[in-house]
Design a protein around this nucleic acid. Structure first.
Lengths: 191, 191
DNA sequence: AAAACATACGGAACACGGTTCCGTTTTTCC
DNA sequence: GGAAAAACGGAACCGTGTTCCGTATGTTTT
């Protein structure tokens, strides 16, 4: 027999795993269609499950968002060292990386808002993004600072928070988040 | 025939005016205590009126917010020309004025968020703020641009939108909105 | 194969905030 | 004083997020 001693926990049920992936797909679709605040019931319907199932798999909305965008955050994080190695100067690497981050944020309707929410439910989201990206940003800042290209003493956390804020409402036709971000990048430069 | 058809419409009832000022005071207090998203019922209770009365006087939350902060917005708007006349350079005037705007925003918990909301209910708020402040900002930008102190082609609307965004969450201990705003101001400078 | 058990499910029910509506009260004006 | 207009209050409604529990499904054991 499967000598599974009574100590080992049972493996996850098949339907549970199926529902989890169905939910991830449904959530991704709903996020594209209605932003990251798509109603819970919509997502449940898309996935063909009840609302309870969402909460069982993803206790908070932030958990769901993190799960949906995890690879993209990873990609952004991994791009940092690569850019540092390949760009002409550390400042250029920093600028390129920031633009990458902005690209990510502005294409996810409502993500920038969610990112900065102080709602306890979004704690996970905030924590994950920062844990993964702040060190990368710090490395780039350090390199540029050491190279004497930018003003010293910039806190990566503050910078990322600010960049995130600038991306809020980036889909409005009257606003230009990238322009503002460029001003910030220019402002970083040591003159 | 009442004969009043042609002449002046009836004057506003006394109780109505009383309630309106009571509401303004209650709202101001509620905004300080719980931010500009204080529950409607709270404000009604504070003012000692029913919720219906709020909606009769201020159809949208934005109307209420505008009414509460109107003088401060006016003060900010009027400060523009004064600063331009008194500051050492147009760029300094612009910087000072932006700091004034930031001071206003960061002391009104949740106002910056509300400012950028695309919710139709906040249309009035958005419209009023921009109508009043954008021209002032434009004047300052023009002066600094003409003096050759800043890069040309900055849209005052975009700049104000961005500054507003940077002030979101300014009460978090981990964030420093002013620092970010300073980066933007530095980024405006022509080098 | 069937029973026994653990796990997961669905969706009704609840909580909460904004908004509307209408019977009642208050004020104004003749 | 009395009728008409104006304003009031708050119950009721709606759309969301969230919880809970009886039921169904999958897994393990006999």
């Amino acid at each position: 027999m499967t000598g599974t001693e009574s100590g080992a926990p049972r493996k996850q049920r098949a339907d549970s795993r199926r529902n989890e992936t169905a939910l991830l797909e449904a959530a991704a679709a709903a996020f594209v269609a209605s932003g990251v605040n798509a109603p819970v019931r919509d997502i449940a319907t898309r996935a063909g499950v009840g609302v309870g199932t969402i909460y069982r798999h993803f206790p908070t909305r932030a958990d769901l968002i993190v799960a949906v965008y995890r690879h993209q955050v990873e990609a952004c994080a991994e791009a940092g060292p690569v850019l540092l190695a390949e760009s002409a100067t550390p400042h250029a690497a920093l600028a390129n990386w920031i633009h990458l981050f902005v690209d990510f944020l502005v294409t996810k309707h409502g993500l920038a808002e969610a990112m900065r929410s102080d709602d306890a439910a979004f704690q996970t989201l905030h924590a994950y993004f920062l844990a993964r990206l702040v060190p990368v940003c710090a490395e780039l800042l350090d390199a540029a600072s050491t190279a004497g290209e930018i003003i010293p003493g910039i806190d990566p956390l503050v910078l990322m928070h600010g960049i995130g804020n600038l991306c809020i409402g980036a889909d409005s036709p009257d606003y230009d988040a990238r322009r503002m971000v460029e001003l910030v990048i220019a402002g970083l430069r040591l003159r």
